[in-house]
C-alpha cells in the first residue's frame, strides 16, 4: 500500500486514526507492516502490500 492511503484509513471498529509501522518497503509500496489504532490499540497487519482492516472477529474466517 502507498503511504498516502493513511490520509483516509481508520480503525474499522471505532473509526479512530491508525499509526503506521513499516517493516518492509519497496520504493513507494509498503509491503509488510502494522497499523495500530491510536484509541483501542487493536493492530491490523499489512500483508503482501494489502492492509487487512477486517474487524478482528472476521480476520480468521478465511483461513479455513
Amino acid at each position: 500500500m502507498k503511504e498516502s492511503l493513511m490520509e483516509i484509513l481508520c480503525c474499522p471498529i471505532d473509526k479512530h486514526d491508525l499509526e503506521l509501522d513499516v517493516e518492509t518497503r519497496d520504493d513507494e509500496e509498503i509491503l509488510e507492516g502494522t497499523l495500530t489504532c491510536t484509541e483501542c490499540g487493536e493492530s491490523y497487519p499489512i500483508e503482501d502490500g494489502i492492509p487487512n482492516l477486517l474487524p478482528p472477529d472476521m480476520r480468521d474466517e478465511a483461513a479455513a
Partner: peptide
C-alpha cells in the same frame, strides 16, 4: 488502484 481488505458494513475509512 489502492486495495484494502475489509468488511462492507464496518468500513475502515474516515468520514
Amino acid at each position: 488502484v489502492d486495495l484494502v481488505h475489509g468488511d462492507a458494513s464496518r468500513l475502515p475509512f474516515l468520514n
